[in-house]
C-alpha cells in the first residue's frame, strides 16, 4: 500500500479531483444560467446525435415489431372498448368546436388575441435516455434549428412529461417531471374542487410510490381524490391547461393545510417514444 500512494501518484490524484470538481461546478453553472451549452459541447453533441441513428433506428425497428405483435393480441378487446368511446368523442368534438369558435369571437371582441392557453407545437422523436438511476432525462431529435428553446414544456398525448433543459443545434435534452433535482425550476400547477382553485408547484416525486408531489399550496380547500391537475400558466413560460394527472391522495399536516398532494401522472414516464414540445404564442 505504501508503494501505491507514492508522492507523484498522490499529487496526480489530488490534481484530478480538483479539476473534476472544477469542471462539474463550471458546467452546472453554465447549464443553469445560459440558454445553450458551450460551442464545443454543442458541436460534439450534434455529431454524436447524428451518429446515434446507426444504433437507434434498427433497435427501434425490432422493439416496434415486438410491440405491435403484442398489440395484435389485445386488438379485439380494445376495439370493443373503443367503439363505445367513439360515439361519446364525436359529440364532445362537435361541442368543442362550437365552444372554440365562440371563444375566438369573444376574444376578438375583447381584443384578447393571446391568452395563457394558446400555444405552438413542435413534434419530436425520443432518440435516447440517460442511463442513470436518478437522472430522468430524454434526448430528442429536434433542437435550435427547429425553434426549440430552453424551459419549454414537453407533453405526450396524455399529459405533461417534462421540460427542455439543454438545447443543441439538432437535438435537445428533456428533464422529466419525475426527476428530483432540487435545483431545477418547478412547474406551476392548479387543481380545483367545487369551483375553488388550489395553486401549487410540482416539487418532485415520492421515491416509494412513484407519484408526483404537489407542494407549496396555500389554501385550506379540501381536495377529493381523482380531481384533475393542470398547469396553471403562472410563471410565464408554460401555457395554461396542460394536463398533468389526477390527485391520488392528499395528506394534511397538523396546521390543517394540505401539505402534500400526491398526483398520479397521466403519462407513463417509462415508455415515451414521441413527444410534443409546447411553446407559448408570442
Amino acid at each position: 500500500m505504501k508503494k501505491f500512494f507514492s508522492t507523484k501518484r498522490l499529487f496526480i490524484i489530488i490534481l484530478i479531483i480538483i479539476i473534476s470538481v472544477g469542471l462539474i461546478g463550471g458546467s452546472t453553472f453554465i447549464r443553469k444560467n445560459k440558454s445553450t451549452p458551450l460551442f464545443i459541447q454543442q458541436f460534439g453533441n450534434d455529431v454524436v446525435a447524428f451518429t446515434s441513428k446507426i444504433v437507434v433506428v434498427p433497435t427501434r425497428g425490432i422493439s416496434n415489431f415486438v410491440k405491435s405483435t403484442g398489440n395484435l393480441l389485445n386488438t379485439y378487446k380494445e376495439n370493443d372498448h373503443l367503439k363505445k368511446q367513439t360515439d361519446k368523442l364525436t359529440a364532445t368534438q362537435v361541442k368543442d368546436e362550437a365552444i372554440q369558435d365562440e371563444n375566438k369571437k369573444l376574444r376578438e371582441q375583447l381584443n384578447l388575441t393571446k391568452t395563457l392557453t394558446s400555444y405552438n407545437q413542435i413534434n419530436a422523436t425520443v432518440v435516447s435516455r440517460t442511463p442513470s438511476a436518478w437522472q430522468r432525462q430524454l434526448i430528442i431529435d429536434k433542437g435550435q434549428n427547429d425553434g426549440i428553446k430552453k424551459n419549454m414544456a414537453v407533453v405526450v398525448n396524455k399529459g405533461l412529461v417534462g421540460k427542455i433543459i439543454e438545447v443543441n443545434r439538432n437535438n435537445s435534452k428533456v428533464q422529466l417531471i419525475t426527476d428530483n433535482n432540487p435545483d431545477s425550476d418547478k412547474f406551476a400547477v392548479q387543481t380545483s374542487n367545487k369551483g375553488k382553485t388550489v395553486n401549487g408547484l410540482i416539487s418532485g416525486t415520492s421515491s416509494s410510490s412513484g407519484k408526483l408531489v404537489m407542494g407549496s399550496t396555500t389554501t385550506k380547500t379540501s381536495l377529493k381524490n381523482g380531481n384533475k391537475v393542470i398547469t396553471s400558466g403562472l410563471g410565464g413560460i408554460t401555457p395554461k391547461g396542460l394536463y398533468v394527472g389526477e390527485i391520488y391522495s392528499s395528506s394534511k399536516d397538523s396546521s390543517g393545510l394540505p401539505s402534500k398532494i400526491y398526483i398520479r401522472p397521466a403519462a407513463n414516464m417509462n415508455d415515451i417514444d414521441v413527444v410534443t414540445v409546447v411553446s407559448k404564442n408570442e
Binding site: 479539476i19 473534476s20 470538481v21 469542471l23 458546467s27 453533441n45 442513470s132 432525462q137 434526448i139
Partner: peptide, 17 residues
C-alpha cells in the same frame, strides 16, 4: 468519458474521469 458526460448527463467532469 467526455462524450458520455456531454451527451447523456449534461454536466462535464463525472465520467470524464
Amino acid at each position: 468519458g467526455y462524450v458520455y458526460d456531454s451527451y447523456y448527463i449534461g454536466i462535464i467532469g463525472i465520467f470524464l474521469f
